[in-house]
Nucleic acid binder design. Structure first.
Lengths: 213, 213
DNA sequence: AACTGTGAAAACTTTCACAGCC
DNA sequence: GGCTGTGAAAGTTTTCACAGTT
């Protein structure tokens, strides 16, 4: 086993999982690759290929068992356990994330928050006490933070990422509009709203439109 | 011209542009593909290939002129003009986006906002009056909204997207955790924080086995 | 008949490597 | 010597198409 799984495959697995959970809630028992494809923007062959990279979960002639495939995907994606998340930077975006219920509901619990602003430090926001950035290492260890979200101004982001990695965080989601490269062996993903808007701008400005969704 | 440009290329162009603007501010005149690559996580060959898809902008033996390449990329990405953006859903995420200065600074001005909550309608938030969702079509036309951001609960997102497309919006950025497929010929991009976290979860859960076996 | 699992083919993207220019 | 521009090669991802299973 042990093939390298591409980013796009993992992304699609997440989409399949979201749909499977919906189906499970609605009481569906079986789902075909075609149905999974339709509502996730993939093709049925792609769905089958993606799943087959991890094993044979379907029943020929029938489809996939919704319940089983849901837990299988949760296992593959590491979502059987709730992740302990630390949030650095409680500005507009950080605060919105703190208040975003879906995080906890979908397996990511924010257990620590940090900021440098004196009037934010010590305050409790959405059930989490904001700690001073200076205490980052100690609090990350005490709260056993596994994944960190960086929502600081761009000029602070790289330094914060270093310190998070040094404190033992396993992965970083970066919201600052600056590229952070993997710090040591800690993977980093960047979410940049403006980047996404620029992609749309490109299409509107005359870039070929037949290939995005 | 008119080659098909991939999504990843466009994404990298945005990164190059961000770096070029920094360089311009610092007064740099020339930049090499290697320098552009280093700080954007690309390779120098990739930078040259990406740019060469649109023309020959460099000077052999010297590099690229920072100022010229900046405006060239702004043109390619459609950023010579400021886009008029409409925001649907002024909940936590929507409000954070409204207050996010970088949008306007980087060429995307929010000129209209919508919600269904009676206590939000009519209020002015960050300089934009919140209109009732029922007035969507009229306000979109009056304010000449070109790009819309959907930040509604997932169950409302698809319907809102339809109405936006019908009202003449040219592209949609979707923040609701549900897949929206291209509506007619209106491209849609989805940003989903949980999806990104799940990608990291996958890596932490053992998906990383880089080159083991 | 319906649908999965999967090799093989096709399409696409990245990297290489070097001619040409400053 | 340093650097771009680019065909060709290598690598990766998607699609095809069909044997096999219920």
């Amino acid at each position: 086993m042990s093939v390298r799984i591409s980013d796009s495959t993992v992304r699609r697995l997440s989409l399949y999982l979201r749909m499977l959970r919906d189906l499970r809630r609605q009481g569906a028992e079986l789902v075909s690759s075609r149905e999974l494809a339709e509502r996730t923007g993939a093709t049925s062959a792609q769905v089958r290929k993606d799943l087959s990279l991890f094993g044979s979960f379907g029943k020929r002639g029938r489809g996939y068992a919704v319940g089983d495939l849901t837990t299988t995907l949760e296992d593959i994606l590491g979502l059987s356990h709730t992740w302990r998340v630390g949030l650095v930077g409680v500005g507009k975006i950080g605060a919105a994330l703190l208040g975003y219920r879906d995080l906890a509901r979908r397996g990511f619990e924010v257990v620590a928050a940090f900021d440098v602003e004196p009037d934010k430090i010590g305050r409790e926001m959405f059930g989490v006490r904001v700690a001073p950035l200076a205490d980052l290492a100690r609090v990350v260890r005490e709260e056993r933070v596994e994944i960190a979200i960086v929502a600081t101004p761009p000029e602070a982001a790289a330094d914060v990422a270093e310190r998070l990695a040094a404190a033992g965080v396993g992965a970083i989601l970066n919201f600052a509009p600056t590229e952070i490269h993997r710090v040591g062996d800690v993977p980093v993903r960047t979410v940049d709203v403006v980047l996404e808007l620029e992609g749309l701008s490109y299409l509107l400005a005359g870039g070929r439109r037949d290939d995005v969704d």
